[in-house]
Nucleic acid binder design. Structure first.
Length: 649
DNA sequence: CTGTCACCTG
DNA sequence: CAGGTGACAG
């Protein structure tokens, strides 16, 4: 049948996701090959794009300082890769007249200056708006621009293409902050932008409120103790003091006690504030919002290190994430505009959008994200597939569902260590949380409050040349939560492995056919990619079915003989029969399938055959059952067409 | 030689 | 239900 077509669809689906949906959040090694190059070849032949290219170079001059700042601060090896590439590109492209990227440079001066100036002015205006306006207003402005100025949109695409290598992966830190934002799944690209901005503001507000609260507490503490040092106050101290007052203790020992508390509380308070501040700045960085110079200072590594003196658990994550945050913080704001304006276009989405954002229906993933499921024992699958690139959606989802959306793809045995290190979710989740998550062996689908975007971030950075995937597991996941697959638009119709669903279907088919041919199996399992192994497994299933069937027949036939039944006509098989109940329990355990009457007839005939053979003492012959098998195999009936649909059951 | 089957076993 | 094995047919 059309065995290859759905498979092709699967490939297309994955390519769509990897190349088009979220190219800008992929690592450069992946992105450039699969996204940039085709676009580059396209754009180099376009006069318009060449025109746009000129403006890009001008713009680059504007943002040059940002690029150098970004590239000069990388530390991580893969980070370093990214940044060195970015730095090299930005430098070489701007200086060298050769190379595909710089082809437009030679054409400079050929276009009317008005276009150039208009584009430039528009960008500058937008930059100013970005700097001055609120995130929401800026986004509206971008939307208007992208709607009204198609040329700018293309220019934005060009500019984006030129610059996207220089940007970090903002979503890397999306999940790192345990704020309410992480429990709110994105539903669309524009929503995503809004969400980011809102989250950023919320975090800022939280910080301010915490600061106000701190001041209030300090004042209250002062009132109680009438002390001179207001910085050593805390609510808990106040409560303790009040409590001690009521107990009528003397003032002096109380003060000593409170001083001990003070030291502890100071540390706690300091840590809490540090955490809050860190989270805010991380969030700000991850949202890609421009930071004020002061904020950039705060997100610098020196600042983080100095602030997190006593944050042992988070220190690891902070140091690891630091390059991300820093780069995001220094990302050129003009690039920000282009990303956003492009995100307005439903077809040319270049924003660092997550998989789930791109596909709104995916939202439920966040609420049904599996906690973690470690790989099944190998023996449960007939074989494993070694995929080469490109990566399947199913593989991505496989990992997502098996290890959780925040899992580290580097944990895969085939994952290069460098990829492991740059895995985004190691960013600033508490390190122990990550470690624990990767160790969890829960086999059920946990309901995780994490946002769906996290999984996408992880997926986006896949650079897996080879991934072992157990396709039976995939189908199993699809059964456990088919909505996930539906939402991800993943074609689960073609299976490269047999699943419990297929087993159930085969059992029901057994009611019609005890000896299905290979062709029948292929016809009635159109969603299975047949190969020798799969075919053998299916045949083995029916062999096992027959085994149980004949065992039951022989058992009940012998029982009938023991019971003294002398006439085969006294042996009937009805739906009330114990024999039928046993069979039905085996092949139709859920009892949600109406067993055809023909099966009752065949069962009765089989029972009679066994009874007759045993009665005639034919069972002394080692191969006495063969005659019965020969009779029964002719009693197969056609399987209803309803079984042909892959969605049956 | 290969595929299918029943049988046995875990 | 799957793995292993031997018998058997084409």
């Amino acid at each position: 049948m059309n065995l290859s077509l759905p498979d092709q669809n699967m490939h297309n689906s994955s390519e769509c996701c990897l190349e088009d949906d979220k190219p800008d959040v992929m690592l450069p090694c992946f992105r450039r090959n699969m996204y940039d190059e085709p676009l580059a070849s396209y754009s180099s032949g376009s006069i318009i794009s060449q025109l746009l290219r000129k403006t890009i170079h001008n713009k680059r001059a504007l943002d040059e300082s940002h690029f150098y700042l970004s590239s000069s601060t990388a530390a991580d090896s893969c980070q370093e890769d990214q940044c060195s590439v970015s730095s090299r590109d930005s430098t070489v492209e701007a200086a060298s007249p050769s190379g595909h990227v710089s082809t437009g440079a030679s054409l400079e001066g050929e276009h009317p200056m008005t276009d150039h100036l208009q584009a430039k002015r528009a960008r500058v205006e937008n930059i100013i708006r970005v700097m001055a306006g609120s995130p929401n207003s800026r986004q509206h402005g971008d939307s208007e621009r992208s709607d009204t100025d198609a040329r700018d949109t293309r220019e934005a695409r060009e500019a984006y293409r030129e610059n996207k290598r220089k940007q970090r992966l903002p979503q890397h830190q999306e999940h790192s902050v345990g704020g309410p934002a992480n429990r709110r799944p994105g539903s669309s690209s524009s929503d995503n932008c809004n969400t980011k901005d809102e989250e950023c503001h919320k975090l800022k507000e939280q910080l301010h409120s915490m600061q106000r609260l701190l001041r209030q507490l300090q004042e209250k503490f002062l009132q109680v103790y009438n002390q001179e040092d207001p910085e050593h106050n805390d609510r808990d101290e106040t409560e303790v003091a009040v409590e001690h007052d009521t107990m009528g203790e003397s003032t002096e020992p109380r003060y000593v006690k409170s001083q001990n508390l003070q030291e502890t509380l100071k540390q706690e308070l300091s840590r809490a504030v540090n955490d809050c501040v860190d989270k805010v700045f991380k969030k700000v960085s991850s949202t890609g919002l421009d930071l004020s110079p002061q904020q950039r200072m705060c997100s610098s590594p020196e600042m983080q290190l100095s602030m997190g003196a006593d944050r042992k658990s988070q220190q690891v994550g902070s140091t690891q994430e630091q390059p991300h945050a820093e780069e995001a913080a220094v990302k050129p704001r003009s690039l920000e505009y282009y990303e956003r304006s492009e995100a307005q276009s439903p077809q040319d989405q270049t924003e660092a959008l997550s998989l789930v954002v791109r596909k709104p229906a995916v939202t439920p993933l966040s609420s049904v994200t599996p906690t973690v499921k470690r790989p099944y024992p190998v023996h449960q699958t007939p074989f494993q597939f070694n995929y080469s690139t490109p990566l399947h959606d199913s593989q991505i989802l496989e990992h997502l569902l098996k290890y959780g959306p925040h899992s580290n793809f580097g944990g895969l045995p085939c994952m290069p260590p460098s990829m492991d290190r740059t895995s985004p979710d190691s960013v600033d989740l508490p390190w122990d949380t990550i470690a624990m998550r990767s160790k969890v062996t829960s086999s059920h689908l946990g309901h995780h409050p994490r946002p769906s975007a996290l999984g996408a971030v992880t997926v986006d950075n896949l650079c897996l040349p080879h991934v072992k995937i157990e396709c039976g597991e995939l189908q199993s996941m699809a059964e456990r939560n088919p909505y996930i697959f539906f939402c991800l638009n993943i074609n689960v119709n073609i299976q490269e492995g047999l699943t419990p669903s297929h087993l159930k279907k085969a059992k029901l088919m057994f009611f019609y056919t005890r000896y299905p041919s290979s062709n029948v199996l292929k016809t009635f399992f159109p969603d299975v990619k047949f190969n020798r192994c799969i075919t053998s497994q299916l045949i083995k299933w029916f062999s096992n079915f027959r085994e149980f069937y004949y065992i039951q027949m022989e058992k009940f036939a012998r029982q009938a003989i023991v019971d003294g039944i002398s006439d085969v006509k006294d042996m009937t098989v009805s739906r009330d029969s114990e024999l039928f109940r046993a069979l039905n329990m085996h092949y139709n355990k859920a009892n949600d399938f109406h067993v055809p009457d023909r099966f009752l007839e065949v069962s009765e005939i089989t029972l009679h055959e066994f009874y007759s053979a045993i009665s005639a003492a034919k069972d002394s012959d080692p191969s006495w059952k063969k005659a019965i098998y020969k009779v029964i195999c002719k009693l197969d009936s056609d399987v209803p067409d309803e079984f042909k649909t892959s969605s049956y059951l």
